[in-house]
Amino acid sequence: MVITEVSLRKFTTDVFLAMGCNAAHAQLAADVLLKADLRGIDSHGVARLTGYVRLWEKKRINAQPNIQVVHQTATTATVDGDAGLGLVTAPFAMQLAIEKAKQFGSGWVAVRNSNHFGIAGYHALMAVEQDMIGFAVTNASPLVVPTFSNERMLGTNPICYGFPAGQYPPVVIDMATSAAANGKLEIAQRAGNAVPEGWIQDKDGGYTTDPFALKSGGALLPLGSDRDHGSHKGFGLASVVDILSGVLSGANYGPWVPPFVAFLEPSANPVGEGIGHFVGAMRIDGFRPADDFKSHMDNWITRFKSASRIDEQQGVVIPGEPEYEAEIDRRQNGIPLVDAVVADLNEVAGKLNVSPLTT
Rank of each mutant, 00 (worst) to 15 (best):
N157M: 11
V144E: 06
G84I: 09
P170T: 09
L220W: 15
N269S: 11
L357F: 10
C160W: 01
S216C: 12
M94E: 00
P211A: 03
M126I: 03
D242C: 05
P222C: 06
L33M: 04
V2F: 01
F11G: 12
G45E: 08
A30L: 00
Y207N: 09
G254K: 11
I119N: 10
P170E: 06
S216H: 15
I98M: 00
S231W: 08
P222I: 12
H25I: 08
V70I: 14
G166M: 11
N353E: 15
L357I: 10
A93C: 00
T78P: 01
E323L: 03
F135T: 01
T50I: 04
L143M: 04
A191N: 09
V111T: 02
S43T: 07
A307P: 07
K294S: 05
N299W: 13
T208K: 12
A165H: 09
R9K: 10
A120I: 10
N62S: 05
A262N: 01
D42K: 14
G198Q: 02
K215M: 15
A188I: 06
E327L: 05
L220A: 08
D228P: 08
F278H: 12
I133H: 00
A83R: 06
A74I: 06
E57S: 03
K10I: 12
G86K: 10
W300V: 06
A181R: 00
Y168V: 01
D14N: 07
L34I: 10
R331L: 11
Q68S: 08
Q130I: 00
I187N: 02
E186N: 06
E129N: 09
N115E: 05
V338L: 13
P142M: 03
N139I: 06
P222N: 07
G192M: 11
Q64I: 15
L55Q: 12
V348S: 14
V247K: 10
A23M: 13
N113E: 04
A179R: 15
I41F: 03
N346L: 05
E99C: 04
A30Y: 02
Q313H: 14
A251R: 02
K100I: 02
L337M: 13
I119W: 10
I284M: 01
P356V: 05
S141N: 05
G217M: 12
D131N: 05
E327W: 02
A251Q: 06
G86E: 10
I159V: 05
Q313M: 14
G350W: 08
S306N: 15
M1L: 14
P170H: 03
T138G: 02
N113Q: 01
D82T: 00
T208G: 08
M126Y: 00
M153I: 12
E57D: 11
L49F: 00
V171T: 12
S178C: 03
G276Q: 08
P266H: 09
D210A: 07
W256S: 15
V261R: 14
A26W: 06
H296K: 15
D329L: 15
T208D: 11
V70W: 15
G276R: 14
A343H: 15
Q167G: 08
G254T: 07
P259G: 14
L8M: 09
K215H: 12
G246P: 00
K58R: 11
A165P: 08
F235S: 11
N269C: 07
G45K: 00
P266D: 12
N157T: 08
V109D: 01
S216G: 14
G350I: 15
A97S: 02
A18H: 07
G86W: 10
P270L: 13
D344A: 11
A63R: 00
Q27L: 13
I159N: 05
Y52I: 02
A77H: 01
G183C: 14
